[in-house]
């Protein structure tokens, strides 16, 4: 059989991804109804949907969501503001790298969730602790990706810039090093977004008091299982949309980049 006789590879049916999701939803809907799982722990999908609409109408839901979103945004922005310049500078300066890298390496495997309690002891259960833990959680991936981004820069780009008249280190940094490292930095930020959401939620479930995690836990205490599921599903959806939106924005801004972000 020659190559010409081989059957052409047919494209997978474009409905397949939806079919997979549909199957999961069907299982979710009917397993509790048929008694395959306890409906006390796993409410049917339709109940969860109804509960979700109930949450939309609840002012407390939006209030707590806003509180969480605020903490998350502040924590993430600070982590970026600290982590990106630090990582990029570490990539260009061996002394800085030698000073900072051991600290990062040591703190890398430490579960940030464990640090939450320490922060609470130190700073109380307010926003400061929450924000600090978010920063702790996503600082390392940001620094590492910024570091690698700046290390991977072709030095000839810097030399070309110098031979075209750029003199100061600061100017080279801003005009050449930073844009060249941007794709790697953006890859690290994507990870940081996911990690920061997770860390925020972990801290709120643990310490409660306010925020969407705390709000969700209250339903668990009251045995309102569909609401717990609805909260979780909504948070998952929000995280998914944030990630999707981020990737879209990066693709549009980094149109010049030859690889994948």
């Amino acid at each position: 059989m020659t190559a010409a006789d081989a059957p052409a590879e047919s494209r997978p049916n474009p409905l397949l991804p939806f079919t997979g999701i549909a199957i999961v939803l069907l299982v979710w809907e009917f397993s509790p109804r048929l008694g395959l799982v306890s409906s006390g722990s796993v409410p049917p999908f339709s109940d969860v949907v109804v509960a979700a609409f109930g949450l939309f109408a609840d002012r407390d839901f939006w209030g707590n969501l806003a509180v969480s979103a605020g903490r998350w945004a502040v924590g993430l922005i600070l982590a970026i503001a600290i982590g990106v310049p630090l990582g990029v500078a570490m990539g260009r300066n061996r002394v800085l790298f030698a000073l900072v890298d051991p600290l990062l390496t040591m703190s890398y495997p430490v579960p940030k969730a464990a640090l939450i309690l320490i922060f609470v002891l130190w700073w109380g259960a307010g926003d400061l602790s929450r924000i600090a833990i978010i920063i702790m959680g996503c600082l390392i991936p940001i620094v590492i990706s910024s570091y690698h981004g700046s290390r991977a820069i072709d030095n000839r780009l810097v030399w070309s810039a110098r031979a075209l008249g750029t003199r100061s280190s600061a100017a080279l940094f801003a005009k050449i090093v930073f844009p060249a490292a941007l794709p790697q930095i953006c890859a690290g930020l994507r990870l940081a977004i996911a990690i920061s959401i997770f860390t925020l939620l972990a801290s709120e479930l643990l310490i409660r008091q306010s925020g969407i995690g705390s709000y969700m836990f209250t339903f668990l205490d009251d045995g309102q299982t569909p609401q717990v599921w609805a909260c979780a599903a909504l948070l998952a959806t929000i995280a998914f949309l944030l990630d999707l939106g981020y990737v879209r924005i990066v693709h549009a801004s980094l149109r010049w980049f030859e690889g994948d972000v």
Partner: peptide, 20 residues
């Protein structure tokens, strides 16, 4: 004593600024 626009350079790998 150092690089400067009086001495331009062209490399084998082009070294164009990819973001521009």
């Amino acid at each position: 004593r150092g690089p400067g626009p009086e001495r331009g350079i062209v490399f084998q790998e082009f070294a164009l600024f990819p973001w521009k």
